[in-house]
């Protein structure tokens, strides 16, 4: 049985469909990347899985199953138990989602203590360790900082650290590394892969970096205009596809030593 299954899912904002008839299935330990057009509905799809659609978004058709059970009718209490530990999410723009008036450490400690019955001091240490795993120097200083005192990529890594704290069964990552330099990105990608190897975590990763998608994924989904335009293994997407849009995307990937406009 698949760990996660989206069956013919349509999602609308105020009755205007943003995503239509999406089918997707993910086994334990599988990594799937969603790539595609800006505005095609990638964030919408993974937020729907976590039951956190913004702006009045609703699943208007189809079903989303996790371990064989529907996610669409879960109560608030059930979601609280699932989120963070079983299913967790790294948001696109983690930085903008942080409360600007609270220090990182206060939020992180609170987050840890809603999932685990430990002392503030232990929670603090756990947070510091997670931050340092994300290659943030001086985890302690980061904990004592307000979001505006961190760089964009540092805020993003705080979001990644939180998302990975409890080795979730399913990790939904929305452009987790697009704000990171390439060496830091490589280290974070390695940690995603380790999470999968050690804990069998399944990952859905939204990314614009086709190199990253190709490196990490067992399966790649290409979205355009609210539907799945193309999908398949890395070899199929990179070498076998006949879809014009996928080819356009591949052709547009900037490469070192490639086209110059000036």
């Amino acid at each position: 049985m698949a760990m996660l299954e989206l069956k013919d899912v349509t999602i609308s904002y105020k009755n205007v469909p943003a995503v239509q008839n999406v089918n997707l299935s993910l086994e334990e330990g599988e990594i799937c990347s969603i790539v595609g057009e800006s505005g095609s509905g990638k964030t919408t799809v993974i937020r729907a899985v976590l039951g956190l659609l913004a702006g009045g978004g609703k699943v208007t058709k189809g079903d989303i199953l996790f371990d064989g059970e529907t996610l669409l009718t879960r109560s608030g209490e059930e979601w609280r138990k699932l989120r963070g530990t079983k299913i967790s999410m790294i948001f696109q723009d983690s930085g903008a989602m942080m409360n600007p008036t609270r220090k990182i450490g206060d939020c992180f400690v609170e987050y840890i203590r809603t999932h685990e019955n430990i002392s503030k001091k232990d929670a603090w240490e756990k947070g510091v360790k997670m931050l340092e795993n994300m290659r943030l120097p001086n985890g302690d200083n980061v904990m004592r900082s307000y979001p505006f005192q961190l760089s964009g990529g540092m805020r993003q890594r705080v979001g990644i650290a939180m998302g990975m704290t409890y080795q979730p069964k399913l990790l939904l990552a929305d452009e987790p590394t697009s704000a990171l330099d390439v060496t830091t990105q490589a280290q974070i990608i390695r940690q995603f892969m380790e999470l999968r190897e050690e804990y069998g975590t399944s990952i859905i990763m939204v990314t614009h970096n086709l190199g990253v998608a190709a490196y990490m994924s067992d399966y790649i989904v290409v979205m355009k205009d609210g539907i799945i335009e193309d999908e398949g293994t890395r070899d199929y997407i990179l070498k076998g596809t006949r879809k014009e849009y996928t080819k356009t995307l591949l052709d547009a990937v900037p490469s070192l030593g490639g086209v110059r406009y000036v």
């Binding site: 800006s38 964009g152 547009a252």
Partner: peptide, 14 residues
Amino acid sequence: MDEATCALDVSVQK
């Protein structure tokens, strides 16, 4: 432009 195109797909970025 501070990472002004990092959230764009490569085709729109182009």
